[in-house]
Nucleic acid binder design. Structure first.
Lengths: 214, 214
DNA sequence: ATCACTTTGTTAAAGGTTTGTCAAGTCATA
DNA sequence: TATGACTTGACAAACCTTTAACAAAGTGAT
């Protein structure tokens, strides 16, 4: 009942903590202080303590944090102790890349199906799953429990598809289409706008160049 | 000479403005007020005015902003009036997906080469460019002007490769490997950590579920 | 059991970002 | 040309995030 609303700034840092803690576990490190972790990660120790404290104190004075325990706790916070089922819409190279990415499976994200409207792609194999025609999507969603849809299709198709998805039980959309999706209240969207990321890079290249010249 | 350091929060929003302005241009809209744009984009009008003002006033009282002019100005700020040359390291599905993405070309990002260490992939065609062996990379970079390297390879290979890249003139790295790269001062890195993005989604699915149950 | 040392959790201050407000400039119309 | 409606740019206030500082609690050597 104690929902004190963690900021997305904090949530956004958790996966990185998890990555470093995983590395530490692999190295056989059992405990770590915020100070030591801060040096590895290039952030302030204060921020680390503050972040972890949002969830109520995983450490111990004079000792620091237990790596394995902290790793497990952050995993739970991120919901990685659950299983999620996802389908990919769009079997181009990007869709295939995501279907083939084994690390998602390790984190509990289970690849259930992949769809495309191009008949030439239908029947192709992506990690043991056959590409299905987009017409089969609705039926498939009704028959199989799927929480997440991954959209790797052009923007117009993406917008048209949203209703089919939410009407058939999809709760969250991982959106690679270059458009802001308009979804009903309660449906989650996480955008990955690759060209936005590339433009940020281009801005910074340019700015650095301008600085040098001045 | 007047470098008043724009915050990355603002820069991060510019690509989205550009997207909406492009749509407006396509719709034939000539001018728009911050109020109207804010309704379309679901942000405050105040933020829009503040953001644009970082670069010194593109609008006019009583009129609003000229869509085409604003579009061009933001393009310039993002450095999209320049050409950049990039190579992709890693010719798996993700590397191929990025090589095939025509929109990058439209924005001035020119696909020059793609490399892989897997001999089975060498010689394959990605949008008219043949996959080269990773051993050829160094020579290629010395012969061709390339500013950006796109890394779509596993993390250990990525870390090992950084020195080769920066020693041969690469200025910026668009990093899809799941690791924080340690680069010399002055080299830019833009990370795209897909699994981090997926974990954020998983956190939010979970949180929403917890809220419903309470 | 004590003591010097370590390190957290917490609070407060500093720094940044976003939003609200309004004077001043522009447009459209009579 | 005068007027009313509109809209920006600028400033201030509100809000949020990060950093600094330190008391309290635990560790570990003797």
């Amino acid at each position: 009942m104690e929902t004190k609303e963690i900021s997305q700034a904090v949530i956004g840092r958790l996966p990185r903590y998890l990555r470093y803690l995983g590395d530490l576990k692999d190295e056989g490190v059992e405990r770590i202080s915020s100070q030591e972790l801060s040096e590895r990660m290039n952030v302030t120790a204060s921020q680390i303590r503050q972040d972890f404290n949002n969830f109520g104190g995983f450490g111990q004075q004079g000792y620091g944090y237990n790596v394995a325990y902290l790793y497990d706790e952050i995993s739970k916070i991120l919901g990685l102790d659950h299983k999620y089922h996802f389908v990919i819409i769009g079997a181009g190279n990007l869709g295939k890349a995501l279907g083939n990415y084994l690390n998602f499976e390790r984190r509990g994200f289970i690849f259930e199906g992949i769809f495309d409207k191009n008949p030439d792609l239908v029947g192709q194999d992506v990690r043991g799953v056959k590409v299905m025609a987009i017409e089969e999507l609705e039926h498939f969603l009704k028959e199989n429990p799927v929480e997440i849809a991954v959209l790797t299709i052009p923007k117009t198709s993406a917008v048209d598809l949203v209703n089919v998805l939410v009407d058939n039980g999809i709760q969250a959309i991982w959106n690679f289409a270059h458009v802001d999706l308009d979804v009903p209240e309660g449906i989650l969207v996480e955008n990955v706008h690759l060209s936005d990321s590339l433009m940020k890079l281009s801005y910074n290249i340019n700015r650095r160049k301008a600085e040098k010249e001045s």
